[in-house]
Every structure is written in structure tokens, then in C-alpha cells.
């Protein structure tokens, strides 16, 4: 294959990564933005979403689409409830002190991960996609009689992958609408701006926090349900999304939702493209070092305007 089709294939794969990453990272960013809490257990909520999706899909049986549709609703809701419960029982007691919540969420990370190991086991298990038609993609070539289309071997994608990209877009627009157009979004933004003032105006800050923490975890779980037909569910799968979400949230500017989405697309796409031409390890080394240096030299993020 020539370089052109190769690059197109890499960007398609990158776009799927970017779509899932955007959902996960927006969840993390929401929690950090509103609550000022760094949730190290975020990757485990992602993993929990994937494992629950497998559980729902296999226990329902029937056509894959039925199980998948059920998982799409059940997994995020369950994970959101678990997270909200963790917020009310643990984080609230720590009064959201930044250092202590980090240590507590590390504890939570190991508990969720190891309970999954005990119950679900160490195997990676697949979930069948609801639909999965292969699409071959054309490429333009300059022949003797001007431009002509041809179908290079291996250049293609599946309808499911395109649906993932579409679904992530819809959800992200939904989150944006929720934050900017509804009353509950207004309340969240008020809490983000000034917690004490919000409380003085009668906003039940603690309930808002539980809601935000649950919503953030549910977004991660939703991303995981979308990706599990491509990737397989495994109890250690939360590690990479956590790291990549951190990278995205920091590069996009801590707590800025539009910045997070732009950074997710940038990081997801470049991760896909760099991985094709170099090794995935090198891609990750470059990304982590980039993040460390962004934090050191531009703490407000590449796109953030507000000083931290």
C-alpha cells in the first residue's frame, strides 16, 4: 500500500480511539473541574463499565443487539450509582482535601480492580457488536485518463466503528447541552465557580458533588461499553484509559470541557498515527513526556486561557 491509504486507515483507527477517549476524559475533566478532585480510580470505572457490559450481554442472550442495547443503559447507570455511593461514603468524609482524596481513590482503584479479579476472573472476554458490516473504502489515483477511484486491499472499516464515532459525538453534544442549557448544568457551573457562594444561595452542594462524581464515572463506563466489542473486557484494562485521560485533561487545560475534547481528538489521532509509523511504546513515551512538560511550563494547558 502507498502512504496515502495507509495514513487514512491510521486516522480512522485514531478517530475511534479519540471518540472513546473524549468520553472518558470529559468524565475525568468534569469531576476535576467541579469538585477539584483528581480521581485516580477513573480507569477502574471504565473497566467496570466494560465488565458489566459483558455480564449484561451474556446473561440476556438472544440477538447481540438486544444485549448490547441493554448494556448501553445498565452499565453506565450502575457504575454511576457505585461512584455516587463512593463519593457519599468516602470522599465526603475527607472533605475533598486534594491529597487525601488522591490516596483514597488509589485505594478505591485497587479494591475495584481486585474485586473484579476475584469475581470476573483474569480472562479477557469479548462482547459481540450489534452490527458489524465491513466497508471497503476507495482511494483516488491519478491514472492515464485523469483521477480514478480504486479499492486498495486492506483499506476499510466497519459500520460499528463509524457508529462509535457518531455515538460519542452525540453524547458529547448532550453533555455540552446539559452543562450550558439546563438548570442542573447551571447549578454545577455555579458550584464550580464558587462552592461557598453556591451553598449560601441554597444549592445542595453535597448532592451536586455526588451527581457530578456519578456522571463522570458513567461517562467513562459509556465509553467502555462502546469500545468493548472492539477491545474485549479485562480486569486490567483501566490502566491505559486512565493515563490517556490524564494526558488529555492536562493538555486540554484542567477543568475545561471544550479543551478536553479538542485534546482528546488531537491525542487520539496522533496516538493512532504515530503507532502506525513507530512503535506504540514510543508514542506513549512522547505523550507522557509532553504532558509532564506542559504541566511544568504551561500549567493552564495548551488551550486554557485562564491562569491556574
Amino acid at each position: 500500500m502507498e502512504i496515502g491509504p495507509y495514513l487514512m486507515l491510521a486516522s480512522l483507527e485514531g478517530a475511534v480511539t479519540a471518540a472513546v477517549l473524549a468520553l472518558t476524559a470529559v468524565g475525568l475533566s468534569l469531576v476535576f473541574g467541579v469538585m477539584r478532585v483528581v480521581n485516580v480510580a477513573h480507569g477502574e470505572f471504565f473497566m467496570l463499565g466494560a465488565v458489566l457490559a459483558w455480564w449484561v450481554a451474556t446473561s440476556l442472550g438472544g440477538h447481540p443487539a438486544i444485549g448490547f442495547a441493554a448494556a448501553l443503559i445498565v452499565a453506565p447507570v450502575l457504575v454511576g450509582l457505585i461512584a455516587a455511593a463512593a463519593d457519599m461514603t468516602i470522599l465526603k468524609r475527607l472533605e475533598y482535601d486534594p491529597e487525601r482524596t488522591i490516596v483514597a481513590t488509589i485505594g478505591l482503584l485497587y479494591i475495584i480492580q481486585q474485586i473484579t479479579l476475584m469475581t470476573y476472573g483474569p480472562d479477557a472476554r469479548p462482547v459481540e457488536p450489534p452490527f458489524n458490516t465491513r466497508l471497503a473504502l476507495p482511494w483516488v489515483e491519478w491514472g492515464e485518463s485523469g483521477p480514478a477511484l480504486y479499492w486498495p486491499w486492506g483499506l476499510g472499516t466497519t459500520t460499528y466503528k463509524l457508529a462509535v464515532i457518531g455515538a460519542a459525538g452525540v453524547v458529547l453534544v448532550g453533555v455540552w447541552g446539559l452543562m450550558t442549557r439546563t438548570r442542573i448544568g447551571l447549578v454545577m457551573r455555579a458550584t464550580q465557580l464558587d462552592r461557598e457562594m453556591a451553598q449560601a444561595f441554597g444549592i445542595p452542594v453535597e448532592r451536586v458533588y455526588a451527581l457530578v462524581f456519578g456522571l463522570g464515572a458513567a461517562l467513562a463506563a459509556l465509553g467502555a461499553v462502546l469500545v468493548v466489542p472492539i477491545q474485549q473486557a479485562h480486569y486490567l484494562m483501566g490502566h491505559d484509559p486512565l493515563l490517556l485521560s490524564f494526558i488529555v485533561v492536562i493538555v486540554g487545560g484542567l477543568g475545561s470541557l471544550p479543551g478536553t475534547v479538542v485534546a482528546a481528538v488531537l491525542i487520539g489521532m496522533s496516538d493512532g498515527i504515530i503507532s502506525v509509523f513507530f512503535t506504540p511504546t514510543l508514542a506513549k513515551i512522547l505523550a507522557t513526556l509532553l504532558v509532564a512538560l506542559v504541566l511544568v511550563f504551561r500549567p493552564q494547558g495548551l488551550f486554557g486561557a485562564r491562569p491556574a
Binding site: I90, R100, V103, A104, G107, L108, I111, Q114, L117, M118
Partner: peptide, 17 residues
């Protein structure tokens, strides 16, 4: 158990709390 890291998690959580 194989899932011995759960102990680490519980102890961390209890200590912070």
C-alpha cells in the same frame, strides 16, 4: 487469594479515613 492487592486498597482507604 490471588487478589491480594485488594488488601493494599482497603488499608489505604482505612488509613485516609
Amino acid at each position: 487469594t490471588d487478589a491480594y492487592m485488594a488488601v493494599v486498597g482497603v488499608v489505604l482507604l482505612m488509613l485516609t479515613l
